[in-house]
Design a protein around this nucleic acid. Structure first.
Lengths: 168, 168
DNA sequence: TCATTTAGATATATACTATAACAATTATCC
DNA sequence: GGATAATTGTTATAGTATATATCTAAATGA
């Protein structure tokens, strides 16, 4: 017998008749309401997309969140940490470690702000811009693979719908 | 001065000229490649959708993953744990604690399988089915809100695209 | 001036995910 | 038939992501 769950304080009910042999492939089972659920499907889709992204970006050691920071900083040099974090939906408290790592890897720098001595202006280094260039190429290839999955014709619709879903 | 990051082993570069006053609202900043990125947008969209879901389901104390288990078990009574976990993309090792909680709350039961003494057949209890009924009502309302965001006309397209994205 | 707010940081807690190992059982194959 | 391999449920554990409370220095505002 396999080990029984010790945390369960509920007595198990008496054995009930078995379904014949439900060893059917997981693919062939009834998803019920989940099969038509935007919430469920978008979660599965997001995981699948990130899986492809993470595999592709492992070559340059960037995770999705790190890539997004590089893109934002490159497009908006001089932003302060809290602005970057807010733009990406990251809490500034959790953003500190991310910045530490990017800075330690020599991809970005915190420069003391002249106008506000509490804050730093964040910018990419030369290395950061070089890595971002590689990253953007990987990203384009990744995006292309994703678009192929649901069809080029639907691309604009997809971008629109996701944007609308995301804005509260 | 705010506390400096102690982990940073990189010397900060000398101060660079500030951008005039970039305290603009985070909404009004350049997202660069992210604004058209399926990967970025689907992550933000998924978080927004889950946010609505979690708020709505807080009333009955169900998290998205728990709801998905109840739906699957109801539609496929008698499945074994590993099959449920596989169907939902959860590792069987992490599924144990989920089952423990559902069982402790009296929503589901593990029944010893007759044909295989290693495994359990999982089923909903009466309470489980009753709670699922409430949950399905909350879910329908939630889905309706989400569909309103991107437009009823696009619903079928959305379901199709997300499904295609999700399948490897 | 004094109270409040903000920026960056630290510490910490919780949720989610991933891997390794184990006992009991079942399946495989020579 | 018996050794070997694979499977099921489980535990322990590590890593990652996220959330809250608190702190100091600095800026803001009444």
């Amino acid at each position: 017998m396999p080990a029984r769950p010790k945390k369960s304080k509920i007595t198990r009910s008496a054995a009930v008749d078995e379904t014949p042999d439900r060893t059917a492939a997981p693919a062939g089972l009834d998803l019920g309401a989940l099969g038509q659920s935007v919430g469920y499907l978008i979660r599965r889709a997001q995981l699948a997309v990130f899986d492809d992204f993470i595999r592709a970006f492992a070559a340059i050691g960037l995770r999705p969140a790190q890539f997004s920071v590089l893109v934002i900083v490159d497009a908006n040099p001089g932003l302060k940490q809290s602005e970057i974090a807010a733009a990406l939906g990251i809490q500034r408290t959790n953003f500190v470690a991310m910045m530490d790592e990017l800075e330690q890897r020599g991809l970005a720098v915190r420069t003391p702000s002249k106008s506000d001595r509490r804050s730093y202006a964040v910018e990419l280094t030369g290395d950061g811009r070089a890595l971002l260039k590689e990253a953007l190429a990987l990203h384009a290839a990744h995006e292309s693979r994703m678009i192929d999955r649901f069809g080029r014709d639907s691309h604009a619709d997809m971008i629109r719908m996701l944007s609308q879903l995301a804005q509260d």
